[in-house]
Computed example of a mutant assay.
Amino acid sequence: MSAAGVRTVAFPASLVPELAQHLAEHAEAGRTGLVFVGARGGVLRRNNFRRIWLRALAAAGLDDVHFHDLRLTGNTLAATGGATTRELMHRMGHSSVRAALIYQHLVNDRDHQIAAYVDGQIKKGKRPPRDPSGT
């Protein structure tokens, strides 16, 4: 694991109650305890994860959601919220810009949002007079 893989990342305060409940009921104790554990309290094995994940999706009324989609959604929201390339790299634990640029590419329609915002501001106010020279 690279140095970028070990980091502290802020998350929405609205998730604190759910995270605290999960940690109290399902995780190992302590700062270094596992957040997700197997049925007997040990390391969650890859071959058991799918069954547990599908059960969790069913309980939430969801289907066709991959675990990695959570990362994709969080990073897309961060990019949409205006996170810089460096900030995305930190949040994702990457030491290169390649992955961060992928998430920023997903929000390329931001240019259209900016234009729509400017259009709304123009409509609120008076349009500037046109220069007879066309500039």
Results as ranks from 00 to 15, higher is better:
residue 70 L to M: 13
residue 93 G to L: 01
residue 93 G to N: 01
residue 88 L to V: 08
residue 82 G to F: 08
residue 80 T to N: 09
residue 67 F to P: 06
residue 82 G to E: 03
residue 64 D to G: 13
residue 50 R to S: 13
residue 63 D to I: 13
residue 87 E to N: 07
residue 93 G to V: 01
residue 73 T to Y: 03
residue 89 M to S: 05
residue 65 V to D: 00
residue 95 S to K: 14
residue 59 A to K: 15
residue 88 L to T: 06
residue 80 T to E: 14
residue 96 S to Y: 03
residue 61 G to H: 14
residue 83 A to K: 09
residue 51 R to E: 12
residue 81 G to L: 02
residue 58 A to S: 12
residue 91 R to A: 02
residue 75 N to F: 07
residue 95 S to P: 12
residue 46 R to P: 01
residue 89 M to N: 01
residue 94 H to V: 06
residue 68 H to N: 04
residue 77 L to G: 02
residue 88 L to D: 03
residue 61 G to E: 00
residue 56 A to N: 08
residue 59 A to D: 05
residue 55 R to S: 06
residue 97 V to Y: 02
residue 98 R to Q: 15
residue 54 L to D: 11
residue 47 N to F: 13
residue 52 I to L: 11
residue 92 M to T: 04
residue 97 V to K: 15
residue 87 E to D: 09
residue 63 D to M: 15
residue 69 D to E: 03
residue 76 T to R: 06
residue 87 E to V: 12
residue 65 V to M: 07
residue 62 L to V: 14
residue 97 V to S: 15
residue 94 H to F: 04
residue 54 L to A: 08
residue 87 E to G: 10
residue 51 R to L: 11
residue 77 L to K: 07
residue 45 R to K: 07
residue 58 A to V: 12
residue 85 T to L: 07
residue 61 G to Q: 05
residue 89 M to D: 00
residue 55 R to F: 00
residue 97 V to C: 09
residue 53 W to Q: 07
residue 72 L to N: 15
residue 67 F to H: 11
residue 52 I to T: 09
residue 76 T to C: 00
residue 78 A to E: 02
residue 90 H to M: 02
residue 76 T to K: 02
residue 90 H to I: 07
residue 65 V to I: 14
residue 83 A to M: 10
residue 84 T to M: 03
residue 67 F to W: 10
residue 53 W to H: 08
residue 76 T to E: 01
residue 87 E to L: 09
residue 57 L to Y: 04
residue 52 I to E: 11
residue 76 T to M: 03
residue 74 G to M: 00
residue 71 R to P: 03
residue 95 S to C: 04
residue 79 A to D: 06
residue 78 A to F: 01
residue 83 A to Y: 12
residue 73 T to Q: 08
residue 75 N to H: 11
residue 69 D to C: 06
residue 54 L to H: 13
residue 77 L to M: 11
residue 51 R to H: 10
residue 56 A to P: 03
residue 70 L to H: 06
residue 74 G to C: 04
residue 55 R to I: 01
residue 46 R to C: 08
residue 89 M to K: 02
residue 96 S to K: 15
residue 46 R to L: 10
residue 45 R to N: 07
residue 75 N to C: 13
residue 53 W to Y: 07
residue 56 A to I: 02
residue 57 L to G: 03
residue 88 L to Q: 05
residue 69 D to F: 06
residue 68 H to Q: 08
residue 54 L to M: 12
residue 45 R to M: 08
residue 79 A to V: 11
residue 59 A to H: 08
residue 55 R to G: 06
residue 98 R to H: 15
residue 71 R to F: 04
residue 58 A to E: 12
residue 45 R to G: 01
residue 61 G to R: 14
residue 63 D to Q: 14
residue 66 H to V: 06
residue 91 R to F: 02
